[in-house]
Every structure is written in C-alpha cells, then in structure tokens.
Design a protein around this nucleic acid. Structure first.
Lengths: 226, 226
DNA sequence: CTTTATATTAATTTAATGTTAATTAATGGT
DNA sequence: ACCATTAATTAACATTAAATTAATATAAAG
C-alpha cells in the first residue's frame, strides 16, 4: 500500500521514448505513475487519478503544456497538483509564459534521473508545506479594486507596486528572479535601470512591513506569509 | 447562537461542483449556508430562510440571476438581502443590466476562496451600516429621470455625466479604466480626445463634492460611498 | 579583504491627470 | 429660422503622483 510513497505522479510527453524513460525511473522510486501523450489526454486523466504532481512537457501537439496547465489551474474543484514543466534548454520563453500559467518548477531536458528524483522529492515536500500552511494565509489581492488586504488592513498601492506584489504573492514561497519580474510587471520589451526593482521592493516593504518579502541574494525575491 | 456569525447566506448556481466548492468555503468561515441550483428554487428558499446575503450566478437555466434578483427586489414584504452576482470574467460591464436589477456587487469567476470571504465580509459590513443609518444607501440612481439622489439631495445631471456616474457607482470600489469607461459611456467605436473623460469627472466632482470619485493613477477611477 | 549584489535615500524625470477657457454641437422656445 | 441655453468636446497649460535614475551605503559571498 505505502510502497508508493503515497503519491501519484502524472507524466505528460508526446515522445514515447521519453515517456518510457521517465516513467521507468520514477516508478523505480516507488511512486505510482500514470502517463499521457498530450494535453487533452492529460486533462481527462487528471480528473480520475488526482495526481500530486504533474511533469508536463511544454511542446506538444494538440494542446501544449502551458495551456494544459492553465486549464488545470482554473479548475477550482481540483486539489491543485504541483506542476513542473519539462523544457528544452533553449525554450526559455516558456519560462515566462509558464509561470503566469501557474507552474511550480522547470526541469530542463536532457533529464538526468538523479536530478529528476531529487526535484520530485523537493516538490512534494513543498506540497506538504503548502497544504499545512493554508490556514495561515493572510493576504487578499483584489484586482477589481486595486487593493490589497493584509491582516485585515486595506492598502491602496500604486500601479507598479501593486503588480509587483500581485506577482510575488501569487505563489508564496516561490522565488522570482529579476528577469521574471521584469517580464511580467514591466513587460518584455521595456528597459529600466538596475535599481528600479529594488526601489519598488523597498516601497512595498515600507508599507507591508519587512517581514513579508525576502531577498535571496543572487537569485531573486520571494513573498512569504507569516 | 453566534457560531454562525449571525448570518445566513444563500448560494445559487446550477453547477453542482461550483456550488459545493463555494458552500464548503463559506461554511468553513462559520456562516450558515443554504444552496439552490436555479432561480425558482432560490425564490422558494428565500422566503423561508431570510438570508442576509445571496450569491447568485448570472447564467442559469430556467430563471437567470438577473430575473431572480428583480423578483426579490420587488417583494416589499421581504427584508432585503444583499445580493452579489457571480459572473464569468468575460461577461463585460455591459452587464450593468444587473445593477438596474438591484445587485450590490459582482464577484467574477474563477473565484478565489480568500477573496470571496473578504468580499462577503465587506458586503455584510455594508449591510450593517445600511440598516443602522436610514435604510437607504446614500446614493440613488434614477435612470428614468436621469437624476441622482445623494445624501438626500437631488441632482439633475446631463446625459454623459449621468452615465459616467451610473457606471462608476454601479460597483462602488471597483476601479474602471479609461477603456472601460469609453466603451460603456461613449460606445466602443467613438473616438474622443484625451481629456474628455477628465472633464466629465471634474464636473461630477464639482457637483458631488470631491470625496466620492477617487483617481487611481495609471489605472482608472473608482466611486466610493462614505 | 575584495567583489558583487542589494538597500537606501534623495533627486529627477515622466506620464497621467487636473483645470480652465474657448469652441462646437445639440436643444428649445418664440 | 433665429436666437438663447445648455451640453459636450477640444485645446492649451498646470499640477502632481508615480516611476525612474543616480549616488552612496551595506551586506553577503567567495
């Protein structure tokens, strides 16, 4: 019963060889593995097996990974799985689109089994924390009102600050690097100076208190609810 | 006595999954929740349970949310509940129809639990003020006469000003951007200069006092009762 | 230590909106 | 049809909040 480590993993890729390679390696670790070879198939399966984690190829015919991910994230009835994208190293455009779609991580091809397993474990650990911390969530972002409610207090923020906070708070705990932040909040084409993000972070910290946004030097920023 | 926070909430939606999702989340907060899956059913229930708040899906078979709302609002024997519409994000503001029907707010799908709860609380707070004050909100918009009643004073407004105010006041707190305002008040096709909206806002502020309409720079305008 | 990344603060620029007045378009009465 | 009024729009300019940059200080990593 519990030789499956209690987790179901869905792997989605259109190349049969990769699919086999991945599922073999993941199964070997004791997880329960299902596979699908495109987005449509994946969506059908997801309903039935309720996976903890989905490894999702980005480039697929019919319905690509990003779209599939979006559909899953919009389904409010589903216990939300962790979703990791499988991407070729070159497709870093997918990084940005992907994360707006709600991906939790990226695993780039070619995939090395050891690394894969360790990522899976770390992702599942995060899932556990997510579920546990659910009750302590403390921030509400109301895009209609352009208003943030933090610990009961309402805060009116200027545009950029709001959008920056919205991004960070959309996935508490996830670290966003500067490029990602620039891409989403400022747009891919705009060029701004080196210190622009910092200053906005500063202003947010002034208003929220500086316990929420943490700097991870050399990497990026992350929002954490208490 | 007060383990229900003293409020009964009725949720109406034809999709069982959404209904379950919503009622689960609202119940969890300690409210007493009833559900109905269409307008007819809702109307029957309303008589018996006297809800403080109704969350009402707009698109439903048999009797849609707008019609249901109208019927409730016309019933003079009923202690009038707060009514919030559940709408898909795509159904645009042209749905001002809903407001003429007497809705107090809109909540757009997909619905995020924390946001939902915070909106419910804010709506119930408003209800309390309503009851305590006089029994009337402090702005009444009379489309037949193109007349606005604000804090007891009647104001005759010219067409554009009226329609602009009507839009803003239709969702107190919601920020409308310029495109939305143009689309609804001027019509999608008409082209007007950059300062046209501002001037109308100016005139409204002159007449209402400038505490009601707030500018959120880079975003839009919002109406707030207070 | 030295380097590199980020923090902080103040100064500056920019973009959005505010304001007023002049212009044009509608409306209404005689 | 004409004038008088009111409304709507445009145009020119002012103001201001917000965004950005610049300059300098700290702090973490190697």
């Amino acid at each position: 019963m519990e030789n499956t480590k209690g987790h179901t993993i869905l792997i989605v890729d259109d190349e049969p060889d990769i699919l086999e390679f991945l599922s073999y390696n993941v199964r070997k670790e004791g997880y329960k593995v299902f596979t699908a070879s495109n987005g449509i198939e994946a969506l059908r399966l997801v309903q039935q097996i309720n996976p903890s984690l989905i490894l999702l190829d980005v480039m697929m015919p019919k319905m690509d990974g990003i779209e599939t991910c979006q559909v899953i994230r919009k389904d409010l009835n589903m216990v939300q799985p962790v979703i990791a994208f499988l991407t070729a190293r070159t497709e870093d455009y997918a990084q940005i689109a992907g994360f707006e779609a709600g991906a939790d991580d990226y695993i780039s091809k070619p995939i090395r089994p050891r690394l894969l397993i360790s990522k899976i474990e770390s992702l599942l650990r995060r899932l556990k924390n997510k579920a546990g911390a659910e009750g302590t969530a403390n921030i509400v972002i109301d895009r209609d009102r352009y208003m943030v409610e933090l610990e009961g207090k309402e805060l009116q923020l200027p545009k950029k600050e709001f959008e920056l906070l919205e991004l960070l708070a959309s996935r508490p705990g996830k670290v966003f690097n500067r490029d990602q932040i620039l891409a989403v909040v400022w747009g891919n084409d705009t060029i701004v100076g080196e210190r622009t993000i910092d200053v906005h972070i500063r202003k947010l910290r002034e208003k929220l208190g500086d316990t929420y946004i943490r700097t991870i030097k050399g990497v990026g920023y992350t929002f954490n609810e208490k």
